[in-house]
Computed example of a mutant assay.
Amino acid sequence: MTDLSQFPITARWPAKNPGIIQLYSFPTPNGVKASIALEEMRLDYEPHLVTLSDADVKSDAFLSLNPNNKIPAIIDPDGPDGPIGLFESGAILLYLAEKTGKFIGETASDKARITQWLMFQMGGLGPMLGQMGFFFKFAGKDIPDDRPRDRYRAEAIRLLAVVEKQLEGRDWIAGDYSIADMAIAPWINVLELYGTKDIVGYHDLKNVPAYVDRFFARPAVDKARNIPPRPA
């Protein structure tokens, strides 16, 4: 039987089956990247719900796996050199794609193109839309200064325009369906939660809404979008 005792997180979130990938997550746009990849790649895994409360993500147990206190994180008992723990959603997507040889392209050039769009999400689309959500829906909405809201709204519009142009004449962001789509589409979809579709002109776009609908129509994505399930 696989021994994961070297990972202190397993004391708080015990593995029922330590021989398969352990996922520590919550169904946010970043969290579902990992569950979507695991489902699409048909990897066996065991999900553990880690809420966004400080009691979970800032616990010693979780920090032992991710010192940056953000979901998702994984442990793969069948890593390249033995069991391995990983954090950062983009790193997890790359690791799983390379492990399985799926959704990363057929050539080195394919991989480079897919990786650049993954980085586009990690460095631009995700952070900018996340900040927009903070200033339009969450605590930042009560700040009287409109400049932060104007800045992140403008950035959201600009970034959506980049995606709209890239999708012209193609179904997926970098050619065939890939981990780049698993990163980008969940973040665009969060505009619904933020209630900001109208202010960024979402409904005036042609390619982006069709892309998001196409993405969430995939059976693996539909299943993974609430893994681990949100608390009732």
Results as ranks from 00 to 15, higher is better:
6 Q>W: 07
7 F>L: 12
12 R>E: 02
13 W>V: 15
21 I>L: 06
23 L>Q: 03
24 Y>N: 05
24 Y>K: 10
25 S>Q: 05
30 N>T: 08
30 N>F: 01
32 V>E: 00
32 V>T: 05
34 A>E: 03
39 E>G: 13
40 E>P: 12
40 E>F: 06
40 E>W: 14
42 R>K: 14
42 R>V: 09
45 Y>V: 12
47 P>S: 04
51 T>I: 13
56 D>A: 08
57 V>T: 08
59 S>F: 02
61 A>P: 00
63 L>N: 06
66 N>W: 01
67 P>Y: 00
71 I>R: 04
78 D>F: 08
81 D>C: 06
83 P>H: 03
84 I>F: 01
86 L>W: 05
87 F>T: 15
87 F>H: 02
89 S>W: 00
90 G>H: 03
91 A>D: 01
93 L>F: 01
97 A>T: 09
105 G>M: 00
109 S>P: 08
112 A>L: 02
114 I>V: 02
115 T>Q: 08
116 Q>P: 07
116 Q>S: 11
116 Q>I: 13
117 W>I: 14
119 M>A: 09
121 Q>C: 06
129 L>T: 10
130 G>D: 01
132 M>A: 14
136 F>C: 11
136 F>R: 15
138 F>C: 06
139 A>F: 02
143 I>T: 11
143 I>D: 07
148 P>K: 11
156 A>L: 12
159 L>P: 06
161 A>R: 07
162 V>T: 05
166 Q>V: 09
172 W>G: 11
173 I>D: 00
191 L>F: 04
194 Y>M: 10
201 G>K: 11
205 L>T: 05
207 N>T: 09
208 V>T: 09
216 F>L: 08
219 P>D: 05
221 V>C: 11
222 D>R: 08
224 A>N: 04
